[in-house]
Simulated scan of single mutants.
Amino acid sequence: MVHYQARLDATFAALSDVTRRGVLEQLAGSDASITDLADRFQMTLTGMKKHISVLEQAGLVTTEKVGRVRTCKLGRRRLEEEAAWIERHRQLWSARFDALDTIVEHLKRKEKADASSK
């Protein structure tokens, strides 16, 4: 359980930042060097390296250094566990909202009936 939670935490922390989500979008199209990514996002090389490090720790990105160039690509890790976690919670909240809708409709009918009887 702890390993599962740590993995979810790392993934959601990595995805919580708009720049890191943008990097994943870019890498979905094609591999890119850290320098290219830093240029695209108008940030320092050091800043981009930190973002890439977070994505690597979550398993969402891999890097390979050839000569002086470090190339980034999407990691092999898929997000099945995260998607399953989200789906479980979506179902829970959907059921709660459905129950709330039922209560609201019942109250509306009761209010209408009370108004008609007066």
Rank of each mutant, 00 (worst) to 15 (best):
M48E: 14
T102R: 14
I86K: 09
S117I: 12
E80D: 14
L107Y: 03
R76F: 06
S53D: 09
T102F: 10
K108E: 10
H51G: 05
F41S: 07
T63P: 08
C72M: 06
A95K: 11
L27C: 04
K110C: 14
L79V: 14
E64N: 02
G75N: 05
S117D: 09
A14Q: 02
T35G: 07
L45I: 04
K108H: 09
A115K: 15
L107F: 08
R20I: 10
K50S: 05
I103M: 03
D31S: 06
S116F: 09
K110L: 15
R20Q: 05
A83P: 01
F41Q: 11
T46K: 00
Y4T: 00
Y4S: 00
S53P: 01
F41E: 05
R70M: 11
T46C: 00
E105P: 01
R88Y: 13
G22E: 03
R90E: 14
M48H: 11
F41C: 07
A58Y: 01
H106E: 11
K108N: 07
I34A: 01
A83I: 13
K118L: 11
L37S: 00
D114H: 13
E56S: 13
A58R: 01
C72W: 04
R78S: 13
W93D: 06
K49E: 13
T19M: 05
F41L: 04
L24V: 03
S116Q: 12
K49V: 09
R40N: 04
V66H: 15
